[in-house]
């Protein structure tokens, strides 16, 4: 006997993500799901962004961390609401864990919620968290071949931030191959070329994310 089912295996995650998205839309909170390899610079980007935009926008952060709260500790000094989700070894966040911690935020007094996903380029792109959009962060030290190897992320993301451009002289990263790889997959996607430690390119990022926050308010 064959029993037809015809449904999305991740239905449970998707339904919860839709709930989260509806709630955040109602509360006019922009949620950015930041996805990168380990060490690409997600936390450093959040540090710089809090410094530059903390006075202008009400920022909150969800830190997805496998076992520690080190990234959250680094952000404490900005006096923003931060919640850590330990995935206990899991390689990605899911919508149920996001939904649970949203109670810890005063959503009526928040403009933007950054979610630092667990460092990984494949798994997190398949689990909708209910975010407004995904941001892909890649760094020059990982090589210039990432878009072609992880097309799903670069299709799903709404912007790409290429970090550590200060290190290009010390790597075999070729910007033109990166750009043409990315163009094949998603030619319309905005690309920010930055150094989160030296500051290059960050004003353009602040400008853009500020506009995104304003649109959702």
């Amino acid at each position: 006997m064959e029993i037809k089912i015809m449904k999305n295996i991740l239905d449970r995650n998707q339904n919860k993500a839709n709930e989260v998205r509806n709630l955040l839309t109602l509360k006019k909170v922009l949620m950015v799901n930041i996805i990168s390899s380990p060490g690409a610079g997600k936390t450093t980007l959040l540090e710089r962004t809090c410094e530059a935009l903390g006075a202008k926008f009400r920022i909150g952060v969800i830190e997805g961390d496998i076992t520690t709260d080190r990234d959250a500790q680094r952000l404490k000094k900005y006096n923003i609401p931060i919640v850590v989700i330990n995935t206990e070894g899991g390689c990605h966040l899911d919508s149920h864990s996001i939904s649970k911690v949203l109670d810890n935020f005063d959503l009526d007094n928040l403009d933007v919620l950054f979610v630092e996903n667990v460092g990984n380029l494949i798994c997190p792109s398949q689990f909708d968290l209910g975010e407004t959009f995904k941001l892909a962060v890649v760094s020059t030290t990982e090589g210039d071949d990432k878009p072609g190897k992880y097309p799903m992320l670069f299709r799903e993301a709404v912007a790409v931030l290429l970090n550590k451009i200060d290190l290009i002289p010390y790597t075999n990263f070729i910007f033109d191959s990166f750009r043409s790889d990315l163009n094949k997959i998603n030619s319309q996607i905005p690309l920010f070329e930055v150094s989160c430690t030296r500051g290059d390119g960050l004003p353009e990022w602040y400008q853009w994310i500020g506009e995104m926050i304003n649109i959702s308010r």
């Binding site: 006997m1 064959e2 029993i3 037809k4 089912i5 015809m6 449904k7 999305n8 295996i9 991740l10 398949q126």
Partner: peptide, 8 residues
């Protein structure tokens, strides 16, 4: 990521 059917 789709389940079509089961047989049994």
């Amino acid at each position: 990521l789709f389940i079509k059917s089961i047989e049994g």
